[in-house]
Amino acid sequence: MSSASTSAAWPAALATPRLALRPVERADVPVITRLWTDPEVRRHLGGPVDSNVVRIRERRCVGAPGVFVVVRQSDEAVVGLVSVTAGARDGRTEVAYQLLPEHWGRGYAREAVGAAVSWAQDGVPPGSPGVVALTQEANLRSRRLLEGLGATLMDSFVEWDEAQVLYAFPSAPAR
Rank of each mutant, 00 (worst) to 15 (best):
A8C: 04
W10Q: 02
A12R: 01
T16L: 09
T16Q: 07
P23W: 00
A27K: 09
V29P: 03
V31A: 15
V31T: 11
V31W: 05
D38R: 03
D38W: 07
E40T: 09
E40C: 05
V41K: 00
H44G: 09
H44D: 15
L45N: 09
P48G: 06
V49M: 10
V49Y: 06
D50K: 03
V54M: 08
R55V: 14
R55A: 15
I56C: 14
R59Q: 14
R60Y: 15
R60K: 15
C61G: 04
V62G: 05
A64D: 10
P65Y: 02
V67E: 02
V69H: 02
V70P: 04
V71P: 02
R72L: 11
Q73Y: 06
S74Q: 14
D75H: 04
D75G: 06
A77R: 07
L81V: 11
L81P: 02
V82Y: 03
V84R: 05
G87L: 13
E94Q: 11
E94I: 03
A96T: 08
Y97P: 00
E102T: 13
W104R: 03
G105F: 07
A109V: 08
A112D: 04
G114N: 08
G114A: 11
A115F: 02
A115Y: 01
S118A: 13
W119H: 04
Q121G: 06
G123Q: 03
V124F: 05
G127P: 01
L134N: 12
T135F: 08
Q136L: 12
E137F: 14
E137R: 13
A138G: 12
L140D: 14
L140M: 14
R141K: 10
R141T: 13
R144Q: 12
L145K: 03
L146K: 01
L146P: 00
E147N: 05
L149T: 03
L149R: 04
G150W: 04
L153H: 12
M154T: 13
D161W: 05
Q164Y: 05
Q164H: 10
V165M: 10
Y167H: 09
Y167W: 07
F169W: 03
P170N: 01
S171Q: 12
S171L: 13
A174M: 13
R175W: 11
